[in-house]
């Protein structure tokens, strides 16, 4: 079932094209990782997908409705975790959640119950009556996420929800995202932290300069740029391996020896690791094996010629 789709969506700011003919389908139960550097158009895409920003051309369909995709009925099914921490500092954690639950029409006992559940989900039950001013950055982020969950949205949009927080809080949030997926929530997750996408996304969309430049499962995307595989063996005595024996294995391109390390470079998908290992073990002892595979960062670099994050953004 398609939750949301965009066809030929164009958004301009004057002469600057923020979204350039975006075609996108989001299916129920997916976690889509929307990846791109600052200014790629991720937030603009979210803005147009949720009706916050009008677009210049194309169509947006939400929950099968293309005529009135941003109706109140559809909005009740969407949750937005904003990039900024959009909570009320003068209200307690519980009151913040009561506010957002109330805005989504929850009342009385149902509202109380949802607020309790969500506080527990984000691990803030014991902080319910405290003001966010007393919270750490990670706790504020978790409350920010909780505010989008009070009405149990079936489609959750998370716009860089982990910016500027410690690794523990980040892991907590990522685990929470997986739990939401397990409950059947469809999630669109934008970030420029590649490791987050690798940890949670079932499908990845890479954006750059307002365009979707590639999409697919993380494995598929890596496959598209993977031309060779690299395996390094640490052995007890490399001299004892007969010269040329490894080079003869099908798919092997090169063999490099440095000290006790032998590095074998093969064609991608050669599936010759077993053969290499048996030849090496026949002649000498194996102390360790290391494989090097490309990741999504390499995919992004190959596609755009740029790193995903500026050096200043690295944590």
């Amino acid at each position: 079932m398609t939750i949301a789709s965009m066809r030929g969506v164009v958004k301009r700011y004057g002469s600057y094209v923020a979204l350039d003919s975006i075609d996108l389908d989001i299916h129920a139960g997916e976690i889509i990782g929307l990846l791109g550097p600052n200014g790629a158009g991720k937030t603009t895409l979210i803005g147009t997908l949720t009706g916050m920003r009008p677009f210049d051309h194309g169509t947006v369909e939400l929950f099968g409705q293309s005529k009135h995709p941003f109706s109140h009925e559809n909005k009740e099914k969407i949750g937005l975790v904003t990039q900024e921490i959009t909570i009320f500092e003068e209200l307690t954690a519980k009151e913040n959640l009561q506010f957002f639950a109330g805005v989504y029409g929850l009342k009385g006992e149902v509202r109380k119950q949802k607020v309790r559940e969500v506080l527990e989900f984000v691990g803030l039950s014991d902080q319910a009556n405290k003001l966010p001013t007393k919270f750490s950055g990670g706790m504020k982020r978790r409350l920010n996420i909780a505010c989008a969950l009070t009405h149990s949205p079936s489609f959750l949009i998370m716009d860089e929800p982990t910016v500027g927080i410690d690794p523990q809080s980040r892991n907590y949030i990522l685990e929470g995202v997986k739990r939401l997926r397990d409950r059947g929530t469809t999630i669109l997750y934008t970030t420029h932290y590649i490791e987050e996408i690798e940890a949670i996304a079932s499908r990845v969309i890479i954006m750059d300069q307002g365009q979707i430049i590639k999409e697919g499962t993380p494995a598929d995307l890596i496959q598209t740029i993977q031309h060779e595989e690299k395996v390094s063996f640490e052995v007890t005595d490399p001299e004892r391996i007969p010269e040329g024996s490894l080079e003869k294995i099908a798919g092997v391109r090169r063999v490099l020896t440095a000290g006790n390390d032998i590095t074998v470079i093969s064609d991608a998908g050669s599936g010759n690791l077993d053969r290499m290992l048996s030849i090496i073990k026949e002649h000498t002892g194996v102390l360790g094996i290391q494989t090097e595979r490309p990741n999504l960062e390499d995919v992004f670099f190959t596609l755009t010629g740029r790193q995903l994050r500026d050096k200043g953004e690295e944590q």
């Binding site: 949720t50 900024e84 957002f100 805005v103 505010c147």
Partner: peptide, 13 residues
């Protein structure tokens, strides 16, 4: 300024 209005723009209000 904090973006709460943005969040409310996605809500049914």
């Amino acid at each position: 300024a904090k973006g709460v209005v943005k969040r409310l723009a996605v809500a049914p209000i």
